[in-house]
Design a protein around this nucleic acid. Structure first.
Lengths: 340, 340
DNA sequence: AAACAGTGTGAGATCGATCTCACATATATT
DNA sequence: AATATATGTGAGATCGATCTCACACTGTTT
């Protein structure tokens, strides 16, 4: 037996009033008699009435949902962000639709299109590509609230929350150089991605400042999964003269590098030094503990959500660009390299 | 300048036909003249018409969205599941709304209510409570497709996907007993949770089979986060006669236990043996590698999504209950205990 | 010529909630 | 008593897409 959810009409009928009056009673606006209001409340209660948000949304033009397009929820960094956004969204009476772009521009575009046709109120996006962003510009042109997170996109003028990727990478590599390393490997993501570019550029800047010529053989590109990172690390360290230190651009890659080193019998920090971008749960469990560049993960999602909901509630200040600092946390995965 | 999206009415006006005809042309049903159809297509093209899904949904009563309520996306187990569901949902032309219950029944109920008012087509839920599930029964009574995942709920007769929790836990504890352990600790989740119950019951069964009396002092309850698990482990191992082995019920707890042991100077497997339920990335990186009960994570989300979309496409077989096997993966975190 | 099938189109109802407007009453003010 | 003001309520329009129905027209069959 399929009983349909009760509609306002049902409530009105039961309370013996018009739909208009029922609506007034339930949403408390306009004039309603006390008695009438109570009758309506009781009727609504009895029928288990819950408004149909679709109908409400059709009138108001907007669904109480915000969309969030991230690279990959399986990355703990994004999982944390998604979680924080969801909590804040709920506080603001909104639900959250999550989509993974899998770092593919096509996915990002089609996902965005599909969410837009739902009349979703606003978006938080970690854009896959730093340049290719007509779809994001469209959003802005049509005045749909958008907050970029973790990454910004050229020519897209809107609120954003990122961290100091370049500074973080530079600090890490400078530290490696100060510890005597010259052949410093970089395990990085696709260069389309904003963070990858910035971290690469911090890496380059530190090398330059240390008088070290960049060497393409020291750089390996990998998708951001543990498995791909394992392979990329193995490639990097199978060369005749492999790096003596490695900087990885996210925690999944760091974990991949750890597993690769283990399988190759390379020991940290004896054979190779390691610094990862983004801290992770077990970074302090491994032996040695892993030195990392940490970012304030718990702030990022909340900050982005706050920006978005400010916009949704009508704020129209110029776009706000938040940039959090990163911090080098020195543990035990880097050792001094006696010059060679 | 905020240009509103074009409506069917606009298209019809531009093409000089009625809304009905425009709809027929665009959705290709009923009779439409060739010429007329082309005029309409052209008009739609020109205006960049994309149908308003809200309006469509209001008529059809359903939005192409499925909802998914999990314990916590930050748990890699759920993150993986969410990811797999999202991929399959997209293939089926649906979007995915994700909510975290944070293992609180209230959250689960309010989240469900909020999603239901959106006229979402179906749900995949990991119920927080094994008993308290009137809200789930409501779904079934109202014929809303529901798939339970990771956990089932009493009296809720619907599709479900779980693993053999009891068997997995029993195998783990039997193995510990076979290795000479008697004081076997259990680090578990709240007993409201189905998996917790089942794993507990496997633990008990193994103890009983091994002739070991259950001892409440060997059991510690913790929320499923690394931080809480650290505390719970410390409590458990601060007793006068602590366990010689520990079984943890999920990977976050396993990680918490590892961190706790490190901070207490307890070494694995020398001082204590450890088996965790649910494998994790770094389980093979730690020294020793961690012995775990693994579950086929990559199957679970996909199986659940498939069941759900089968229902959505009208299948009305009796509910299907899928139960995957678990596997004890012996690594190096368990050592033989010389009887004491 | 009459009846019928096939083709093409538009008017209007519908989904459910909300809002405007008009119309009642009741009380207060001149 | 006449007018103004406050208070309650309902009829009907609206949001955008879709669907039913009625109506028209062509061509075929008796």
């Amino acid at each position: 037996m399929v009983r349909k959810p009760a509609t306002l009409k049902d409530v009105a009928a039961l309370a013996n009033v018009s739909r208009a009056t029922a609506a007034r009673a339930l949403n408390s606006y306009g004039y309603v008699g006390d008695e009438t209001a109570q009758k309506v409340q009781a009727a609504a209660e009895k029928l288990g009435y819950r408004g149909n948000r679709l109908a409400q949304a059709l009138r108001s033009g907007q669904l109480p949902i915000v969309g969030c397009i991230l690279g990959d929820i399986q990355n703990p960094f994004f999982a944390r962000i998604a979680h924080d956004i969801e909590v804040l969204a709920r506080e603001c009476g909104h639900n959250l639709v999550i989509g993974s772009s899998k770092e593919e521009l096509d996915q990002e575009i089609s996902l965005l299109a599909s969410l837009r046709s739902l009349s979703i109120r606003g978006f938080i996006v970690a854009p896959t590509s730093a340049d290719n962003n007509a779809h994001l510009k469209d959003l802005i042109a049509e005045n749909v609230p958008l907050v970029l997170i973790d990454r910004v996109a050229q020519g897209v003028d809107c609120d954003s929350v990122v961290v100091d990727n370049e500074g973080g990478a530079r600090k890490a590599v400078e530290y490696l150089i100060a510890m005597g390393h010259h052949r410093i490997g970089l395990l990085q993501d696709d260069m389309r991605i904003f963070t990858s570019r910035e971290r690469m550029s911090g890496y380059r800047a530190a090398l330059a400042a240390g008088g070290i010529a960049p060497d393409d053989r020291m750089v390996s590109v990998s998708q951001s999964t543990v498995e791909h990172a394992v392979d990329a690390t193995i490639r990097l360290f199978s060369q005749k003269s492999p790096p003596t230190a490695l900087f990885t651009v996210d925690s999944l890659m760091t974990q991949g590098a750890l597993l690769a080193f283990r399988s190759m019998g390379i020991s940290i920090p004896h054979d190779v030094s390691l610094i990862g971008f983004d801290d992770f749960n077990l970074a302090t469990f491994t032996d040695p503990q892993i030195t990392v560049v940490s970012q304030p993960v718990s702030e990022i999602g909340r900050a982005a959500a706050r920006l978005l909901f400010d916009r949704l509630s009508g704020k129209s200040d110029p776009p706000q660009k938040i940039r959090f600092e990163t911090k080098l946390i020195v543990r035990g995965s880097v050792s001094r390299h006696s010059a060679g």
